[in-house]
């Protein structure tokens, strides 16, 4: 099997651009997921009426359906009802819709892991509910839940491979195009795998490092 290096070099800019799109989608998807997850888990913690039920329905719907169908529904289905958005917006919303429920579950289990005595002590020194969450619960929950947050983050970056299906020129989509146009199958797939390794491996190391950093709150457990 001869590898056509000339071809690899010539498509390098194409893959570089696609990789940036993948990173951008993954980054915004993860960030929005974290926000959605945090809000949802706080709603669940306070058991706010109606909102709590809505969050529960959202989590079940989002966790039990594939991203591809969610994207198709958003992108092709909702446009027909007059709600139109760009591919990128749609992809980020799709990723956030999917990731939000995973992050919410992660935060929820982290919050549940904070011991009752911590909450009671917080209340007894006169913290308000918001202060309790900000200074007592979240820092501890965050440390406990960091491994699942990291796993979700990697999961979301990998899921960006699916948004190519709605015509976004990310890595998967570009590879499909290149294979279709030039029939350089090995080279294209090689570039694809290399690009994912270049994105995900450093991310995974960074997250492991972060995990170790936030362990400070584990003490006493």
């Amino acid at each position: 099997m001869d590898i056509n290096w000339q071809f690899i070099i010539s498509t390098l800019p194409l893959y570089q651009k696609a990789a940036w799109i993948t990173i951008k989608l993954g980054f915004w998807g993860t960030l929005l997921s974290l926000v959605i997850g945090l809000v949802c888990s706080i709603i669940l913690y306070f058991r706010i009426k109606v909102l709590k039920e809505l969050v529960e329905i959202y989590v079940e719907l989002s966790r039990n359906t594939p991203l591809l169908i969610q994207l198709f529904f958003l992108y092709f289905g909702l446009t027909k009802l007059g709600i139109t958005m760009s591919e990128t917006t749609c992809a980020i919303i799709g990723l956030a819709f999917l990731g939000g429920s995973y992050m919410s579950e992660a935060f929820r289990s982290g919050i549940e892991a904070v011991s009752k005595t911590q909450i009671e002590s917080g209340l007894s020194i006169g913290l308000s509910q918001m202060q309790l969450i900000r200074y007592v619960i979240l820092p501890q929950a965050f440390a406990v839940t960091m491994p699942s947050l990291a796993a979700n983050c990697i999961f979301l970056f990998k899921e960006t491979s699916i948004v190519g299906a709605i015509a976004i020129a990310e890595l998967m989509h570009v590879t499909q195009d290149v294979i279709g146009m030039y029939y350089q199958t090995f080279e294209s797939l090689f570039m694809l795998v290399a690009a994912y390794l270049i994105i995900i491996l450093p991310l995974s190391f960074l997250l492991t490092w972060l995990e170790r950093k936030v362990r400070y709150a584990e003490f006493g457990n």
């Binding site: 699916i162 590879t175 199958t185 797939l189």
Partner: peptide, 16 residues
């Protein structure tokens, strides 16, 4: 399998 997305694996086997 954890690092490379499943869709990529499908492509690797299907095309590669």
């Amino acid at each position: 399998f954890r690092i490379i997305p499943i869709l990529v694996w499908l492509f690797i086997v299907y095309f590669g």
